[in-house]
């Protein structure tokens, strides 16, 4: 695997530094993304970089690129089945109404939670559903900036 031992360790350390850099970017990006309400910036930095980091770990640490091809097919098939599962299930779980049916339970839950967030909301203090019962007593102290409901 590559030339002599020494450059190996250096190679891995180099990759490690890149990964830390990407981590920093994926932390700073969403911070600014929220501040200036640029949703796409949060998405790209948080999730896009996650994929890049994943590929770096796969390639350089797990040496998947030099692995036998059927291992690639097995890994990709596994991920493919999860995408298939997402595609088959999301119309029923992600959506709350469809042809001839309506998920009134979920809609009520969403409306209640959003209304509660609004009521407790306003700038600064942030209400939230502590105990799930109806009497949500907002007692959150850590004032954080208001989250954009994306």
């Amino acid at each position: 695997m590559g030339s002599d031992g020494e450059s190996h360790a250096a190679h891995y350390k180099k990759i490690y530094v890149i990964l830390l850099g990407l981590l920093a970017v994926s932390l700073i990006g969403p911070y600014f993304g929220e501040k200036f309400d640029m949703m796409w910036l949060t998405l790209i930095t948080a999730f896009g970089i996650a994929f890049v980091k994943a590929w770096l770990v796969l390639k350089h640490f797990m040496h998947v690129d030099v692995e036998r091809p059927f291992i690639h097919y097995a890994l990709i098939t596994g991920v493919g089945f999860m995408v298939l599962f997402f595609a088959g299930v999301s119309p029923d779980v992600m959506k709350h109404e469809g042809t001839n049916w309506e998920n009134v339970g979920a809609k009520a839950e969403i409306a209640r939670a959003l209304a509660e967030a609004e009521a407790g909301g306003g700038h600064g203090a942030h209400g939230e559903a502590a105990a799930h019962g109806d009497d949500a007593d907002a007692h959150d102290d850590a004032a954080e900036h208001k989250a954009p409901a994306h």
Partner: peptide, 15 residues
């Protein structure tokens, strides 16, 4: 699926 279906979770995720 749940995160995309439940916008109110963003308010919980803040914490």
């Amino acid at each position: 699926m749940h995160r995309l279906g439940h916008p109110e979770w963003a308010n919980y995720a803040v914490h």
